[in-house]
Design a binder for these strands. Structure first.
Lengths: 351, 351
DNA sequence: TTGAAAGCGCTAACAG
DNA sequence: CTGTTAGCGCTTTCAA
């Protein structure tokens, strides 16, 4: 093979021909040092003489060399790749109705790149711990960031037992055997409830899906906030199977069909759902906010631009991304960081 | 080291202890075959006796073994990782106003996972070919999919010279030295122009940024379509620096300030921009579609739900994702596939 | 159909 | 500060 190569390659004049150096050995030869010295120099190790280091780096750059990441990964047993797992829509038809999660993804991506980590994007196909346990090895990633817990966090507890390094964006609960980062969903709900109470509302409709832990917290917060004012206040539920506009719109339509509204406020599990509710309310002849006050969740960019502009609860995705990454690296360093909740903020607009 | 390990590890009773087998050697020993045979079996090679293969696989599964991807990658010189490069917003404030690109990302992700390829998500930080050339080696990816060309395709032509395997979502041009996949932007523009002509419109405002090749094509299509009907028709331009709602809204506000509208139709470079235009028009006292007809681009999920529902041009992201991946693999197999344009469709709603 | 040997390109350990 | 030696875990010759 080596011989074959030598034969098949045209012998170009040496000088001026600056073919990309293939391996570290090439650089070592060019710099007249040993391979490990090159390795050290490129890692900016203090063990290497400054002048030598500079010379080696110059040669590497000049020859367009960069270390073979796969060899490096094999040797160091570190891939510097983090898998980010989220629920990408399975079919193209089922449109991506989740601007929030992509914003979070962008922020996680930024936080990872600051640490020189690569981001492997995975779709959450499975709710089984073993699938991810296997992925850890088979994908060659160092750890996981799960963006969302799904409807049932049990598999995450299962995964925690395997010592797989991971963190989760979602509901935070002290009994969880893993590290989670999430907005303070309960507090977010309270914010909404209080606001309704201030506005004199007593019957709030919660649109969500309580199988999601985060949603359940938001709903409980709503109830607590609402009752701070008047204990007679009540929360009614509208359960939806998914958080697409269509599903929410349809559910709201049905809720409003025929009978007069049994509520004077709506707290939606997401802004998209709130927007759907807004339209359904209008079509039912109800005015917002005069007849029904509406609050969403997430403060997606578009929330400010619908008409009327949506009052909503904001979560700080930038901080969230940074924290998720930071916690994961603490885990990779052998620590057992605690879960954290991030503050939420009520953004009052016109609904 | 080996000795150290033997000492520090507790000698657990052999039986019943099913610790995850670490290497292929372990499996080989357990199956009483050689390492290469295990390798072949796990690759479902026809060279291995069916019964042996089955036995080996059973053992591997039982012990929770999976091949070390980094070793495999080093040996085969294939990482099975594709870098997908898109322009993620740099700051958190600058919100992700690009639902379309995320839909495309989701579709690319699906197409890759069908081929058992992993997706490395990268932010387009650089417009320099060398940065990506280096990434090819340093990230250890097999190829690139660029989602968007940026304002200047020159660096892509530069990159093409390096023989880096890549494909691009964006404007398609026969003179490009690389493979691109894109919607037929020109045809999309024509669709909009024709529609306006049918509605009797003669002066169309194009909101976009002609530095983007795709935008320029859309604008040219618009002009062509519009003039098919009456040659007196004209296109006016409103250039915007970015495609955020805020920028578009502001630009439109200024355009409409004071003087009466010099146009009776608006073709926006994206749905988000169209939505901003819709609001600005309404605030200027102009009715849609009576006074000004509006057409967007992309048919993002929310386009159907704004009021009035937005007429727009749809691009098939599902097919796009599949094609991008297919073309890239043709390139990786040594072929030189041609660029393709995907059909566009006018979705008539109420604007 | 299987096994023995070699080596992908790198970095860690140790010696100097 | 630098070099020598070894080997990460796998797949690919090649030989049997």
């Amino acid at each position: 093979m080596a011989k074959l190569k030598a034969v098949s390659e045209r012998q170009l004049p040496r000088q001026g021909v600056r073919r990309a150096a293939k391996t570290m050995d090439d650089i070592a030869r060019l710099a007249k040092v040993s391979k490990p010295t090159v390795s050290r120099a490129l890692q900016d190790s203090p063990l290497v003489n400054a002048a030598t280091k500079e010379r080696i780096i110059a040669i590497a750059v000049k020859h367009g060399y960069s270390v073979n990441r796969n060899a490096q990964r094999l040797r160091t047993r570190r891939s510097s790749i983090i898998a980010v797992v989220l629920h990408l829509p399975q079919q193209s038809g089922r449109a991506v109705a989740a601007p929030f999660i992509f914003q979070l993804l962008a922020d996680v991506s930024r936080a990872l790149s600051i640490r020189n980590q690569d981001l492997l994007l995975c779709s959450a196909e499975s709710d089984e711990a073993h699938a991810y346990e296997r992925m850890l090895a088979s994908k060659g990633v160092d750890g996981f960031i799960f963006l969302g817990q799904g409807t049932n966090g049990a598999w995450l507890s299962e995964l925690a037992k395997t010592n797989a390094p991971f963190v989760v964006w979602g509901a935070v609960d002290d009994t969880q055997p893993y590290c989670a980062v999430g907005s303070d969903n309960l507090a977010g709900g309270v914010l909404a409830g209080r606001r309704f109470a201030q506005l004199g509302r007593t019957r709030a409709l919660f649109i969500g899906n309580r199988a999601h832990a985060e949603m359940d917290l938001r709903r409980r917060g709503l109830e607590a906030g609402l009752k701070e004012g008047r204990s007679i206040a009540a929360v009614i539920d509208l359960e939806i199977a998914d958080f697409s506009y269509e599903t929410a719109y349809q559910a709201m339509k049905e809720k409003l069909a025929g009978k007069r509204a049994q509520f004077d406020a709506v707290f939606a599990g997401s802004d998209i759902v709130a927007m759907a509710a807004l339209v359904a309310l209008r079509e039912a002849g109800l005015r917002t906010p005069e007849d029904v006050s509406v609050i969403g969740y997430n403060d997606i960019p578009f929330a400010a631009h619908v008409s009327p502009p949506l009052t909503t609860i904001r979560q700080d995705t930038h901080q969230a991304g940074a924290l998720l990454v930071e916690k994961l690296f603490q885990i990779l360093d052998g620590a057992r960081p605690k879960s954290v909740t991030l503050p939420t903020e009520l953004i009052v607009r016109q609904t």
